[in-house]
């Protein structure tokens, strides 16, 4: 275990450096720079103004100097400065982190629990009406574009029924605090979390059903049945546990992308998450910010991968860390 972690740590450093290198040069391939974007948005510019902006952003330096500066910053755990937003990148990311974690955590949690339950049900009643209904619903949500589901939920629950707010994270105009604020955020969270959750839910339900059906066909299940173990116990103890591996893998992938947020859902519901921040940074050529978000995301992916490996060994003792 310790050797595994030690070896992983060494790999992590190399992987992250590689990612930083690729990210940096890949992003600099994009045509146009932040000064041009700013000048473009202004609708007017002078060469002097552009030059002042480039000097301010450090874009007047040769690319390798910019890269060495970036690496130097990374080594000292400094993600750099977003000149466009006039704030340190780490501060910008931290500002958005709570909203992102809240939305992604709720959506993935809801999807995991509900999706696994539905998949479990479908697998136990395979071929019957319950299975057909669950499979169709899951397919429907999986195939429908997330932004369309979001807009429809807004139209029905916000505009027509007036139960929930259209978007945002709080009712700023109401100046709430304490428990009232928590309730207000929860109300704002419902639609985006459900929208995103329904999409993920479909994945978990389909995965769970397929994995369980596969395990049902294996010898040890037949043996258990022959032994006279009750079907419920077989499902819970023998099938479900063995079917969890692909679920854990998928969960790992989704947790890895948690920092990237969900651009579409955040956009539709004006949710102040990291996805929107990264998306805007790309169009604005705010490369320091984008590199910062990408770097943090890659750290999370690497760490989640290690965690997933460890969970495998817990779920299935036959798997060894090496």
């Amino acid at each position: 275990m310790l050797t595994y972690l030690r070896r992983s740590a060494a790999q992590v450093v190399f992987v992250l450096l590689g990612i930083a290198l690729i990210n940096f040069f890949l992003l600099h391939l994009a045509p146009g720079d932040a000064a041009q974007v700013l000048a473009g948005e202004s609708g007017a510019a002078t060469p002097e103004y552009m030059e002042a902006l480039r000097r301010q952003f450090g874009l007047d330096q040769p690319l390798y100097v910019q890269f060495l500066r970036y690496l130097g910053n990374l080594v000292t755990f400094d993600l750099g400065y977003s000149f466009r937003q006039s704030l340190p990148v780490s501060e910008l990311i931290l500002q958005r982190l709570p909203a992102t974690l809240l939305l992604m955590g709720t959506a993935i949690g809801f999807a995991l629990v509900a999706g696994c339950a539905l998949g479990f049900l479908a697998a136990r009643r395979a071929g019957k009406l319950t299975d057909t209904v669950i499979s169709i619903v899951a397919l429907l949500f999986y195939a429908t574009p997330v932004f369309w589901v979001g807009i429809m939920l807004i139209v029905v629950f916000s505009v027509m029924l007036d139960w929930l707010p259209v978007g945002g994270m709080t009712s700023v105009e109401a100046n709430l605090s304490g428990l009232a604020l928590v309730g207000d955020v929860a109300l704002h969270l419902v639609l985006p979390a459900v929208t995103l959750g329904l999409f993920y839910l479909a994945i978990y339900a389909r995965l769970m059903r397929a994995a369980m059906l596969e395990v049902y066909g294996q010898d040890f299940v037949r043996t258990a049945r022959a032994k006279g173990v009750r079907p419920r116990r077989i499902a819970w103890r023998h099938v479900l546990r063995n079917a969890l591996l692909p679920i854990v893998t998928t969960l790992g992938v989704q947790l890895g992308s948690i920092l990237g947020g969900a651009v579409l859902v955040e956009t539709v519901f004006s949710w102040p998450g990291l996805g929107r921040l990264a998306f805007a940074a790309l169009f604005q050529r705010d490369l320091n910010l984008l590199l910062g978000i990408l770097f943090c995301s890659s750290v999370v992916v690497v760490l989640v991968n290690i965690a997933v490996d460890l969970v495998y060994t817990l779920l299935d003792p036959r798997i060894e860390l090496n």
């Binding site: 807009i151 807004i154 978007g167 539709v268 519901f269 004006s270």
Partner: peptide, 14 residues
């Protein structure tokens, strides 16, 4: 209160 609502359909709804 200037609110940022990035999606056009959500703006129309709001």
């Amino acid at each position: 209160l200037f609110r940022m609502i990035p999606d056009a359909a959500a703006r129309a709804a709001a």
